[in-house]
Amino acid sequence: MREVTKDEVVRISLELNGKTVSGNATSRMLLTDFLRNELGLTGTHVGCEHGVCGCCTVRIDGVAARSCLMLAVQADGRRIDTVEGLAASKDALNALQRAFRKHHALQCGFCTAGILMSFSDFLSRKQNPEEDEVREVLGGHICRCTGYDGLVKAIMEAAAEMRGETPSNAGAA
């Protein structure tokens, strides 16, 4: 049994984007705030803080979920992936990110990190999705810039590229 009392500050260790990191957390600290304020990774955005907008989506043990609906102490010992872990380097975006750039699937970028994390999970489970399925997963995000069509195109093309069906230099950095 693990117990963290309300005034306690505890050390949390987790595997973040493949590296073991640690930081201090109180029992009520949200995972979003831990990632942004304690670890300094501000790629994960905070929108509604009640699970509706999708901006704060990260992968928890590989599975896309809202980091505003999870406590930092729950992430202790778990594997967390954020948008910072997607690109191998600044000049080497992954297939999904390249497709987002090519199809204008972002404008202000506020929702983008969450959408990328949702689809990095979804496309790893479903290599050949129907457009309806992509739209269904996209339903868990709110984007006020793109009108979603660019997002759908980008995700469908990235899925095809990840299956090896289109040239990998499409929209390269």
């Binding site: 693990r2 117990e3 029992s27 009520r28 949200l30 705030d33 803080e49 102490v73 729950q74």
Partner: peptide, 11 residues
């Protein structure tokens, strides 16, 4: 928009 102080117990 943050939880009020509370104790966390994980049995």
């Amino acid at each position: 928009m943050k939880p009020a102080p509370l104790s966390y117990i994980r049995p």
